[in-house]
Nucleic acid binder design. Sequence first.
DNA 1: AAAACCCTCAACCGCAGCGGT
DNA 2: AACCGCTGCGGTTGAGGGTTT
Length: 323
Amino acid sequence: MGRSPCCEKEHTNKGAWTKEEDQRLMDYIRVHGEGCWRSLPKAAGLLRCGKSCRLRWINYLRPDLKRGNFTDEEDEVIIKLHSLLGNKWSLIAGRLPGRTDNEIKNYWNTHIKRKLISRGIDPQTHRPLNEKTAAAAAAATTISTTATIKTTTSSAAAAKVTHLEFKNTPPQSLAEISLLKSQLDFKHNNNFHSSQYSSFNPKKTETPSVEENNCTSSSMTTDEEQQQKQQKRESHQNQDVNLDLTIGLAPAKSFSPNSAESRLQQPVSSSCHLFGSVLTRPGCSCWQMDGERRELCRNCQNQNQNQSSKSNHNNNGLYYRYY
DNA sequence: AAAACCCTCAACCGCAGCGGT
DNA sequence: AACCGCTGCGGTTGAGGGTTT
């Protein structure tokens, strides 16, 4: 028995969207906000399935989308992020305001892949093409290291990475960790499980307590554990962030990009605002959709309602939440 | 001029994860 | 724990426009 279809296929349009359909969708979202995609088509009077509406909005109609060609700068950012994250297009898109995952994915497949190959670089491994065999051999080995990320501020929400300290320094990964430091704006203390090529796996961190952080090491004695706990306590006072970084090829299965863990890593997107205690979801543009009318969509309203129990509060009484 | 081929990218599809029950 | 419905992600497809022969 298969999965039930997301919509009644017989009564839905497919293919390219018409101007009228676009307008209906925009009008509806302007009034009601994003979300409830399944019921949206009917409510908006569209003969489309919810998925299709969502895609159309996210990839084409959203007002904060950047149009036009990718700049060289964006190219390089995409290449660097891909070397860290692999095909996590949504995560990469999260670092490029105004660009969508679909757009970046297409651009990667049509332009950047070719660009890298012409440079003699394997687009999958980001290594020189003639080192492919060596890379395959290296895949068998995984090196683990523990890193401490030092931050500049006392607020974990606003924490910016200032430098990394490694217990073990895998030579090849150092550049990538450095890249990670510069490209990714860490906003909270957290455990990471990062791999050299195609995964970037933040472990679950419901509350950003360093004591609760689990800096794993492959062979740690009880004494070492005690030492490390002490170090953690000290580092907490110094507003350091302990990370567990595993350097190696991507694990067969990584965390879901849709998971809360993943969201913790996403930046506060261009359309997310922290005005007082107003917060919108990453990617949701309801708050800025209309310059005059500041209106939250239903999902963002719910999120704000839920904040009281879930969010952390800083000294100003404003809550913060990590994405 | 037209056929063949190539390229781009919007849209679709299937699946996994999450929250609710 | 198991199930269900919804959402979002990544891989893939194919229409349409551009280029070459």
